[in-house]
């Protein structure tokens, strides 16, 4: 298919069924480049399954029966499975690597899988280190990395090696890393971003959010002006909290 497979004009999610077998109450959800869409809802409400459907470009063949279209059409089957043609990068909730290899070997192998330039290792490790306080080096084994180091490396890997027009982010706030910087790395210009989150800061940062319940999309909210203003205020409080937390960590006394 060549060039047209890399040009994304839109993705479309067509409704499936919730866990009770009831059809979802939307006709279609179209998402365009440059948009950030939130996915919110209680644990077990189907947020990760929603993201999964997009990751595998479901064609009514998953447990949710949803379908996903690219540029309004059913995507070519190779786009679903061949990592070299994949348009979707996913940061899942996993906090640890299971592969027994060094950081360098891992990044080289992944770059090969994605058909990317092999000299990105340094860049990825450099950016991973900006997200975590515990230094990561190329010769470390993946399995010894802490949760924060693993997530930072996963973020940098998704940002540079999996670099794709559609990015799916699952609960980045759980990582114990600098979430705003991580979001900035991941959400390049003109990308379609879906972010699963419990964090009001991230949820209100999006343009609209899908509310999940019982495995289905229950509501779709557009972020209001009031919420956008609130987000600015929450961000101010968050930086204040972050500043105090760092001082507590360093063993300082906090004075008003």
């Amino acid at each position: 298919m060549g060039k047209d497979t890399t040009m994304i004009e839109s993705i479309t999610i067509l409704p499936g069924k919730n866990k009770l077998g009831i059809a979802e109450a939307f006709s279609r959800i179209d998402i365009y480049p440059g948009e950030i869409v939130g996915v919110v809802g209680p644990t077990g409400s189907g947020k990760s399954a929603f993201i999964e459907d997009i990751e595998q470009l479901a064609q009514a063949d998953t447990s949710t029966h949803r379908s996903v279209l690219i540029n309004g059409c059913v995507p070519d089957i190779s786009m679903r499975f061949d990592p070299k043609k994949k348009l979707i990068a996913q940061l899942s909730q996993n906090m640890n690597f299971l592969a027994d290899m060094t950081v360098r070997e891992f990044l080289l192998l992944h770059a090969k899988c994605r058909g990317k330039n092999m000299n990105m290792v340094e860049q990825v490790v450099y950016h991973a280190n900006t997200l975590t306080g515990e230094p990561i080096t190329e010769d470390m084994n993946l399995t010894v990395l802490s949760g924060g180091q693993s997530r930072s490396l996963m973020v940098a890997d998704v940002a540079f090696i999996s670099d794709s027009p559609i990015v799916l982010i699952d609960e980045i706030e759980n990582a114990g890393i600098k979430k705003h910087q991580a979001m900035e790395l991941l959400s390049g210009k003109g990308k379609i971003i879906l972010v699963v989150t419990h964090d009001p800061l991230l949820a209100l940062l999006t343009g609209r959010r899908l509310v999940m319940k019982n495995g289905g999309v229950e509501k779709i909210f557009n972020t209001t002006d009031h919420e956008t203003d609130l987000c600015v205020e929450l961000n101010r409080m968050d930086s204040e909290l972050f500043r105090i937390r760092e001082r507590v960590r360093l063993g300082e006394e906090i004075v008003a």
Partner: peptide, 25 residues
């Protein structure tokens, strides 16, 4: 595959292809 990162899944898949290029994964 849900227990590992997307990158690890892609590497695993590549290794399967190396061993059996004609298979359906």
């Amino acid at each position: 595959g849900d227990m590992i990162s997307q990158a690890e899944r892609e590497i695993f898949r590549e290794r399967v292809m190396e061993m059996n290029a004609g298979c359906r994964i």
